[in-house]
Nucleic acid binder design. Structure first.
Length: 605
DNA sequence: ATAGGGTTAG
């Protein structure tokens, strides 16, 4: 069928911006085949020329259009997809194979959900979806986090009996986990009679990405029990689970496994190893993996930059960036996120500003909300609180509660109650369900002895049913990860661990430790009570557990789910001195290395 | 034509 050139041009939104014409040798006695020309095509304008040429030379037919559609959907842009769609609409007898090609394009485009308009049309035309239709559509739901559409597709796939197909099954699992319904994903997984490696991988990855590393690891063990061979993709997710848990022993074991089974040739596996070692507190191992890589891509460099940033070694992050540039590896948005974090963790305000401007102007990277967040942190933490406030106010996007939250944390560490109140108002306008916000403000009131304000804020918090995530610290001893929650044992401290903790605090006090009870919020508590609350903070419990259960001299590695508390930070410094132990504490945003009474963060955090 | 490393929020 013929397509008018007017409709062709209008299908490309930027058609007029292409100027360089393609040379097609039409005088040749054997004119080139339009299908072969497509593969040499570099721009949309050239594509249009080829199309016009095909029409003119009467060589356009169904197979030509199919090729053209496949070409358009290969690396989808808004206009190439709209052109593909146009070609599809013009077909007198479109089949499901061509639809699948378009659906695949949509699933990788910026507006994946648009595929559903076309999907509804083909269903009305009684075109039957097949095994290959569902993965694309489900992928679109996963990208767009469209759980409802995903569920409907799941039902439809069951009706058509393709839900247990090897291609459909993993994408169903992936769709549910990406849409944050991990339990639905698990239901799909559990219904599979004999799950293959890909299904295991989909489920393990889902758990890892949704921050459920224990379940990911338990599936990994189950898989090995069944004699299913993990592949490099399994290892990526398992390593990322080790990183989440801070489980260095298991991570080392996986490293050995990878070496033994030849998985270390994969760049991605090495990058995951760097990330795992860094997040488990062993920066040296991360560096050694990195330096032994023959080929390092953007992600590998970024992983190392982020690793140094999280360990408070901004100089090394910046050095890595220089090396990366000298080896002509292109940085991306995460590389810069790492650099900005490196600067904010060490108070390098000017350097941070420079990287930000460099990123935008030299590399054309559009700042994301995370870059803005890092800038707010950079300014706020360095004490430029008003600048940070102004920075948020002037953003081209409307600020999220998270941006204000970062500033609130900075107000808290600089004890600026006035601005903290102003910022809290901005947060609560947007989201009043986040318990942590009330706690920070109320701690500030407590520090400034405004007890009525503490009480009334606590009451508001209770009325709104805002819940604070409890502090939790974990430590791995002999391959077992032990978790401690803040306040464990406050009411009845009877175990060996609590006695050890009491002993520990006694020795700390002899060395000059004074419990900092100023931020313990309960106004009605006596000093003694406040001190006990503080003593049973999760990080102290975990460290005491480490002292008790590991040989003298061993490094104690603790992972905390929130930011480390001020009192625990000063206690940890003394512990490293008195007990002659290195303590590596990973908190929600960075590492603290305690040694000989000092911390690697130089008390800037 | 299925699963995918570095970010994920103070």
């Amino acid at each position: 069928m013929a397509i008018s050139s007017a409709s062709l041009i209008s299908s490309f939104s930027h058609a007029e911006t292409f100027t360089k014409p393609l040379k097609i040798d039409t005088v040749n006695p054997n004119p080139p085949n339009p299908i072969l020309l497509i593969s040499k095509c570099n721009s949309e304008r050239e594509l249009m020329q080829i199309q016009a040429y095909a029409i003119k030379s009467h060589q356009e037919d169904v197979s030509f259009n199919t090729k053209l559609i496949n070409f358009c959907t290969e690396s989808p842009t808004e206009s190439s997809m709209s052109y593909a769609r146009h070609l599809f609409d013009a077909m007198s007898e479109p089949d499901i194979v061509i639809f699948n090609s378009i659906a695949r394009g949509y699933s990788r485009s910026t507006n994946p959900l648009e595929v559903f308009n076309l999907f509804v049309e083909i269903l009305e035309d009684d075109l039957l979806p097949d095994n290959y239709t569902f993965p694309s559509l489900l992928k679109a739901c996963a990208v767009a986090k469209a759980l409802e559409e995903g569920r409907q597709l799941h039902c439809l796939s069951m009706k058509l009996g393709v839900d247990d197909n090897v291609y459909v099954c993993p994408t169903l699992i992936n769709m549910y986990t990406e849409c944050e319904d991990v339990d639905a994903a698990r239901c799909v997984f559990d219904r599979i009679v004999e799950p293959c490696v890909v299904c295991y991988n989909a489920m393990i990855t889902g758990y890892a990405r949704r921050n459920r590393p224990n379940e990911a690891l338990s599936l990994f063990r189950e898989m090995q029990g069944k004699n299913l061979k993990p592949n490099e993709i399994t290892l990526l997710s398992v390593l990322s689970s080790c990183a989440l848990l801070g489980s260095l022993d298991l991570g080392k074991w996986i490293h050995e496994y990878a070496k033994k089974h030849g998985f270390c040739k994969y760049v991605k596996v090495n990058t995951a190893l760097i990330d795992m070692f860094a997040k488990c507190g062993s920066l040296d191992d991360a560096v050694s993996i990195f330096e032994n890589m023959r080929y390092k891509d953007t992600q590998a460099w970024s992983a190392m930059i982020v690793a140094y940033a999280n360990h408070g070694q901004a100089e090394n992050s910046m050095l890595m960036f220089e090396r990366m540039r000298s080896e002509n590896v292109q940085p991306d948005e995460i590389t810069f996120l790492g650099l900005l974090n490196a600067c904010s963790h060490t108070g390098l305000v000017e350097e941070g500003r420079e990287y930000f401007s460099w990123m935008v102007h030299e590399f054309g990277i559009v700042p994301s909300i995370k870059h803005y967040g890092s800038m707010v942190d950079l300014l706020g933490r360095a004490g430029h609180l008003e600048d940070a406030y102004e920075f948020i106010d002037k953003l081209p996007i409307s600020p999220t509660p998270m941006l204000w939250r970062i500033l609130l944390a900075a107000c808290s560490s600089h004890n600026n109650l006035e601005l903290a109140e102003k910022v809290s108002e901005r947060i609560l306008e947007l989201d009043d369900s986040h318990g942590g916000d009330y706690v920070i403000l109320s701690n500030l009131y407590a520090r400034n002895k405004k007890w009525e304000a503490v009480d009334s804020l606590r009451k508001v918090m209770k009325d709104r049913k805002a819940v604070k995530v409890p502090g939790c610290s974990s430590i791995e001893v002999n391959n077992v990860v032990h978790e401690f929650f803040s306040g464990d044992g406050v009411k009845s401290a009877t175990t060996k661990l609590h006695r050890a903790l009491d002993e520990m605090v006694k020795e700390l006090k002899l060395a000059g430790y004074v419990p900092d009870t100023s931020m313990v919020v309960h106004a009605d508590m006596g000093d003694q009570e406040k001190e006990i609350t503080l003593r049973y903070h999760s990080e102290k419990l975990a460290i005491a557990f480490g002292l008790l259960n590991t040989p003298p001299g061993t490094t104690i590695r603790v992972v905390k789910n929130l930011r480390v508390c001020r009192d625990c930070h000063s206690a940890a410094k003394l512990i490293s001195l008195i007990f002659g132990r290195k303590v590596v504490l990973r908190d929600v945003q960075r590492f603290h290395h305690f040694e000989d009474g000092k911390c690697s963060c130089r008390d800037f955090w």
